[in-house]
Simulated scan of single mutants.
Amino acid sequence: MSRIERVVTHGTFELDGGSWEVDNNIWIVGDDSDVVVFDAAHTAAPILAAVAGRHVVAVVCTHGHNDHVTVAPELGTALDAPVLLHPGDEVLWRMTHPDKDFRAVSDGDTLRVAGIELQASHTPGHSPGSVCWYAPELGAVFSGDTLFRGGPGATGRSFSDFPTILESISTRLGALPAGTVVYTGHGDTTTIGDEIVHYHEWVARGY
């Protein structure tokens, strides 16, 4: 039976000359045989321990910030799995992995694991290549840093844009069922319905 497991790792997010301590969520989706790993944050060992020898269909990077791709090539090699990223974030990827490649993801791409489908939705704003992955059978969306409990992801640094993230949330995530659980890149889960009701507040205060 398909399930969602969480691993939390600690490290730093670095961009524009700044460095911030962060805890990152890594989501492992699948069953006792096959899984997909969402994001490759900070340290490989706890992720490998959670995978526990299962076949990994892909290591999916929701976006290219260093704290989400830290050990992606290492995991890809160790798990014999492709590393997926939207090419809009190649410039960010190269800041961390200048000599490593990834497999390009496009809007509308799908992955199948453990009898369920994961659908890629390009949601730029936090970064140009941010992608959320929707799993209809699980009533879940893996949002990376596009949407959190309490509002949109940050847009105050290079390669980000507030109007763009608002459009992504309203047109893409806001179109999902209200009960869809949002599995975020940092912090606690939420639901689409609990967040989207505050959309006009975000617009008004320039969140």
Rank of each mutant, 00 (worst) to 15 (best):
R6H: 04
R6E: 11
V7M: 08
V8K: 13
V8D: 10
T9C: 11
T9A: 10
G11M: 04
L15N: 06
D16Q: 09
G17E: 07
D23L: 13
N24M: 15
N24D: 15
I26N: 00
G30Q: 04
G30R: 03
D31V: 01
D31I: 01
D32C: 00
V35I: 08
V37G: 00
F38W: 07
D39R: 12
A41Y: 06
T43N: 14
T43K: 14
T43P: 03
A45Q: 14
P46F: 11
L48R: 04
A50S: 07
A50Q: 10
V51H: 05
R54Q: 02
H55G: 06
H63C: 14
N66C: 13
H68E: 07
T70D: 15
V71G: 01
V71A: 02
P73F: 08
G76Y: 05
T77I: 13
A78L: 13
L79C: 02
L79V: 01
L85Y: 13
G88Q: 04
G88P: 01
G88E: 04
D89C: 04
D89A: 05
D89Y: 05
L92A: 05
L92I: 02
L92P: 01
R94W: 03
T96I: 10
D99S: 14
D99I: 07
D99M: 11
D99F: 12
D101W: 08
D101T: 15
V105T: 14
D107P: 00
D107F: 04
G108W: 04
D109C: 08
T110A: 08
T110I: 09
R112I: 00
I116C: 01
E117T: 15
L118G: 00
Q119H: 14
A120S: 11
S121D: 00
H122F: 10
H122C: 08
P124G: 06
P124R: 04
P124L: 07
H126Q: 04
H126L: 03
S127L: 09
S127G: 12
S127M: 10
P128Y: 09
S130Y: 07
S130T: 14
S130L: 10
W133F: 08
W133N: 00
Y134V: 10
A135W: 00
E137R: 10
L138A: 08
V141F: 04
S143P: 00
S143V: 06
G144L: 13
F148I: 01
G150M: 08
P152S: 12
G153H: 07
R157M: 13
R157A: 12
R157L: 15
L166R: 02
S168L: 12
T171F: 09
R172F: 02
A175Y: 06
P177D: 05
T184I: 01
T189K: 00
T190C: 12
I192T: 02
G193T: 10
D194Y: 03
D194H: 11
I196C: 03
Y199M: 11
E201L: 14
G206R: 07
Y207S: 12
